[in-house]
Design a protein around this nucleic acid. Sequence first.
DNA 1: AAGTTCACCTGATGGC
DNA 2: TGCCATCAGGTGAACT
Length: 278
Amino acid sequence: MPELPEVETIKRGVEPFLDKKIIKDIQVNRYDLRFKIPQSIRQDVQGQTINKLNRHGKYLLLDLSNSKTIIWHMGMSGTVKIFSDEKYEPRKHDHVIITTNDNAMVVYNDPRRFGMFYTKESHDVSITPPFSKMGPDAISCTPQELFNNLQTKKSPIKTALLDQSVIAGLGNIYVCEALFKSGISPLCPSNALTQDQIDILLRHSQEILAVAIKNGGSTLKDHRLTDGSMGYMQNFFSVYGRKGLPCNDCTCDHDKTGGIAQIKQSGRSTFYCPQKQK
DNA sequence: AAGTTCACCTGATGGC
DNA sequence: TGCCATCAGGTGAACT
């Protein structure tokens, strides 16, 4: 589920309940996520104040008062729900529960368990994987940075944009949407794009991300805001999940093109309009 | 070495 | 109704 807008939505949802709060307790129901949650997690975080919440790409980072950082990734199906006034009722796949000093419960639920939740010395976070090799966050990435990172890549632009070392935060939905808005074919070799095209691509990417954040992200199946409500961005997709349908503001000859095409690139579905994206 | 495929896991959906 | 195959917002290991 969670690409940058969904993670940002989660960050904004938990921030009032976690920022400057003390972790009174942490309960882990399942340790076997994408990576094992370390057994030391309780002693690493219990009693610590959360000094700051950050997001880089699709990762949430919680800086603690003991100079450790919680590294948190939602995988494909992770959601976070806050129980403060509402009474907590355990649900299937509630794997991690943080209770704060003012008795808010922040609950991480992840059916597929592709997510990650672990700690690291804060000092080491940026100099060890995955962050040591991660590209600039998509929100603050500059056209020059993106151009430079794409220049060395021969793979199709769709595949390159999913590579978090090129640009961090884009996933399958927003890459498809951004390429459509930019009129760029997902099949175009990355190093064949001009700086002008990349300017356009980045501008549209950042605009789509901003709109998506404003709409609380996209709820296809799992994603929810931290109050349990749905995101709305899925209602504004131009191409993603719209195989055979007309593209946004369609002026194409639908009988001729067959509408939006779905292809596979590096094992993942790509949706695009062959007419508008050459 | 860069690019592609596979494995990880659960749940939803569709065909028979 | 059940059973099986396929697919899904991501990532890193294991291939070529």
